[in-house]
């Protein structure tokens, strides 16, 4: 078992290491490893206008997706956890399963059908792309927050606050939100990681000027190895940063509640 686990870790690291090596290699064709050392591939990616534009579009999409997730996802998760019973709860569970049951490709196709109509001519716009990222990440946010609310035994704390005389608004601002702070931060960072790497929907839905970074990245795969590696590493680092910050936030949050400040 341990042999398999170690082999798996190698398997996990190998593509990432090769991408890193390739991004700093001068030339790499038909050799085991790249030759030479250079930072010029990163300079080229940074100075490429379509990559620059896509990079900033992606950051905007990520920002909007995170904010909307917070504004829409938290109330929805709260309503489900605090109020939903029986049939409503079941429907909520179905919603959270939808992204797996309905592939992004099919959703993208639906976007093309619905939003290229005269009534809703939004295809190719920034906001439709953001809405697409929102529906893809919203089920994740809701699932994560509902699970955290259950695990925190939020209902007990809210009941306690109620018996002490706190109104709903006071409970929300004094108890619910502070207790959920790390959960919210952690799930927003995961949403950021998911959104920044999203390709399957964006590839079909983004307009030429609102293409996100992964969509542009695909073109790089047909060019020089070093450039493709560097462009891929940029995406990898962004996703890894968001993802690792998310996990450590969650860990620190769990730890902090047990220790003095």
């Amino acid at each position: 078992m341990q042999v398999i686990a170690i082999a798996y870790l190698v398997f996990l690291a190998a593509p990432v290491l090769l991408l890193l090596l390739g991004s700093f290699g001068e030339t790499w064709s038909n050799t085991l490893l790249p030759a030479g050392f250079t930072g010029r591939w990163y300079e080229e990616v940074a100075s490429d206008p379509s990559f620059r534009r896509a990079f900033f579009t992606s950051l905007q999409i990520v920002g909007v997706t995170c904010v909307l997730n917070m504004l829409i996802g938290f109330p929805l998760a709260y309503a489900i956890q605090a109020g939903a019973r029986g049939g409503v709860r079941f429907a909520a569970r179905l919603v959270t399963l939808m992204p797996v049951a309905v592939p992004e490709l099919v959703l993208a196709f639906g976007f093309i059908l619905v939003f290229s109509s005269d009534a809703l001519p939004w295809l190719g716009s920034f906001w439709l792309l953001a809405a697409g990222h929102l529906v893809l990440t919203l089920p994740y946010t809701v699932t994560a927050l509902v699970a955290d609310m259950e695990q925190l035994r939020l209902d007990e704390y809210e009941h306690a606050a109620a018996t002490l005389g706190a109104s709903f608004a006071a409970r929300l601002s004094d108890v619910t939100l502070p207790l959920l702070r790390t959960s919210l931060i952690s799930s927003m960072l995961t949403v950021a990681a998911l959104s920044i790497g999203e390709f399957q929907l964006s590839n079909l839905v983004a307009g030429f000027l609102s293409r996100t970074y992964p969509v542009v990245l695909l073109q790089a795969f047909y060019g020089a190895t070093g450039f493709a590696c560097a462009a891929t590493v940029v995406l990898l680092i962004l996703a890894a940063l968001a993802s690792i910050t998310s996990s450590t936030t969650a860990q620190i949050g769990a730890f902090e509640q047990k220790k003095p400040q």
């Binding site: 035994r153 007990e156 306690a160 018996t163 005389g165």
Partner: peptide, 20 residues
């Protein structure tokens, strides 16, 4: 009357002290 209007002190089984 809602719980917050009843003016009753409650000690919960797991105490429910606000951890933050």
């Amino acid at each position: 009357l809602l719980p917050e209007k009843r003016k009753l002190g409650v000690v919960f089984q797991n105490y429910a002290l606000f951890p933050h």
